[in-house]
Write a protein that binds this DNA or RNA. Structure first.
Lengths: 332, 332
DNA sequence: GTGAAAGCGCTAACAT
DNA sequence: ATGTTAGCGCTTTCAC
């Protein structure tokens, strides 16, 4: 803030009877300075309540000690876990954590990156809406790590929806379902296409038919249209792009008096808070979202501190698993 | 980032054939420079892809264009609305938004404030755990706005739980309840004591007895102990500190086979996502949390841009209201 | 081991 | 209306 005037490195220097550069060294490279002077300087700094100014440090050294996380929609509970994990890891590493909403817009996302680029050491892009080539291009200039989006050559952490999707199909198959409808999410969403691909492949292996409907807005409100469309398609098993949509579907089905899982089974993804509260409790694919957020920050940190000869950026894949609750049952 | 080298104001100055200060003026005080030169400078800046460095600007001018929001527990859905509102308003105002978790610790909160103070123009403290005198002391040095916490003389926005609490009591009274138990939240929580005070006062007016139990951790997990304690106290109406706790209570009651609202009624606060999904759907006090977050940022912005002769800092009070669902019914 | 000096990119007097 | 100059607070050569 603009308070009276903060203690600077010069105040400490004067008080300690040394040069400013010595103060800087004593505080940052303790081993490069005589233990006696070091202790003295540190003591004086302490006494004067000296706090380095991160801005001045950053301007000079380029090290901002700050990362930014960009999220398509802060509203969506799905991201809370990821945000939490990222914030925690950043905090542990002494990094300041900037959070920004991109409102599901690739342009917005790109602008935010450019706007913040001078202020941060790197970005965690959660469920990025950027095109793959744009992402690669930006990654040449900026330090990026992705969450729940894979782009070859870029570091990132994803929750593997493939395993979850396969488990869904196996579960449904074992209940006697012969066909499944996927109620899809946003076009640009990598996760969405990922889920659908795995679902379709697994369905094929099990001799089930799989169709895709939508896209629907991945929110509770989107559930009305999604449920109606699915019903018109005469499906016995509905897999929604995420829990929000699934919950909306559940609601609409209840409204229309369709028994779940009596007549149709419903499955979601994410296992958000509330998935086990709704009625019937939602069968859904749970993944370690918090862990993914944490891992992405981790990769960003490691990447930044590496020498030129960096090994190939790492991709972390975390397993998901199906949580079976009450919204799935034997085929009608 | 540390990319090759970014375009600076000097590059633009050279290319445009003017002094650096003119570039600065052309970009920041357009009216103080000849329209012709201004346009030229702007065009060159554009062509060169010039982006001002926020750090350098901040270091020189003291204007950081950044605010930080401190939250006791990012995990808690209660804060999502507040965070969202604050982030939105900050974003609209072109401010960078820093989010930090204080882990329910006053010390941590204070440290964060000190750590970030040089990097931001001000702080939004959500449900601050700081003592009142500490808060006042800090407010002398830093720019603070509070959310859901009132400290005289400090700007802030609160959701008025008083009105909601009164509505709870009226509702319960009209259902024939004669006594109510409040399952309290964290000790340090201003909101918690606020709620209890209003509840007790309203109960008194209605000739109801009110008791307080706890404190319980304001999470779903806290509900087990809270429900058991309430049952032992033979209450017919339970008011939980927040929805998380209320949901936990509901769960425990179901486990124990206690009919809700047949034998006891349950009420929460916050109307979080999920409150209408649980069974029975939770009667709860809803408040415009998002609006509160937004208002706090608004106050921070206004405060910063005011002249010395500031009017008394504003306190915004937003009304809450009771949402009646299925967890409350006639007294047994 | 320590000091002097330059400069990160920008803004804000002060001159002209 | 524009240019010159002096820093903001820090780190980092480069000398000594």
């Amino acid at each position: 803030m603009n308070s009276p005037r903060r203690t600077t490195i010069y105040d400490v220097a004067r008080e300690a009877g040394v040069a400013a550069s010595t103060v800087s060294r004593a505080l940052n490279n303790p081993r490069r300075v005589n233990p006696v002077t070091r202790d003295h300087v540190v003591a004086v700094a302490e006494r004067l309540g000296y706090r380095p100014d991160p801005l001045a440090t950053a301007l000079q050294s380029g090290h901002k000690a700050t990362i930014a996380m960009l999220v398509p929609d802060i509203t969506n509970p799905h991201f809370f876990g990821t945000i939490r994990g990222a914030e925690k890891r950043a905090s542990e590493a002494g990094l300041t954590f900037i959070l920004a909403n991109t409102e599901e817009s690739a342009d917005n996302e790109r602008n935010q990156i450019e706007r913040l680029s001078r202020s941060v050491d790197g970005f965690v892009l959660a469920a990025s809406r950027l095109r793959e080539d744009t992402t690669r291009e930006l990654a040449r200039e900026y330090n990026l790590a992705l969450v729940n989006r894979q782009v070859e050559g870029l570091p990132g952490a994803v929750v593997d929806n493939g395993s979850g999707s396969r488990q869904i199909i196996e579960h449904l198959a074992s209940l006697g379902h012969r066909s499944v409808v996927y109620l899809s999410g946003p076009h640009r969403s990598w996760t969405a296409s990922q889920r659908w691909r795995a679902l379709r492949a697994a369905a094929e292996r099990h001799g089930m038919t799989a169709r895709r409907l939508g896209p629907f807005p991945p929110k509770v409100d989107g559930g009305g249209a999604a449920a109606d469309a699915a019903l018109a398609a005469e499906a016995t098993a509905l897999v929604a792009h995420n829990d929000l949509l699934a919950i909306g579907v559940l609601r609409r089905l209840t409204e229309r008096g369709i028994p779940v899982p009596g007549r149709v089974s419903v499955v979601g993804y994410d296992d958000i808070f509330g998935a086990d509260l709704c009625v019937p409790a939602l069968t859904t694919v749970a993944g370690p979202q918090e862990e993914a957020g944490r891992a992405a920050v981790e990769l960003l940190i490691r990447k930044g501190s590496l020498s030129r000869s960096q090994p190939a950026p790492q991709q972390v894949v975390l397993p998901s698993h199906l949580v079976i609750r009450d919204s799935t049952g034997p085929a009608a």
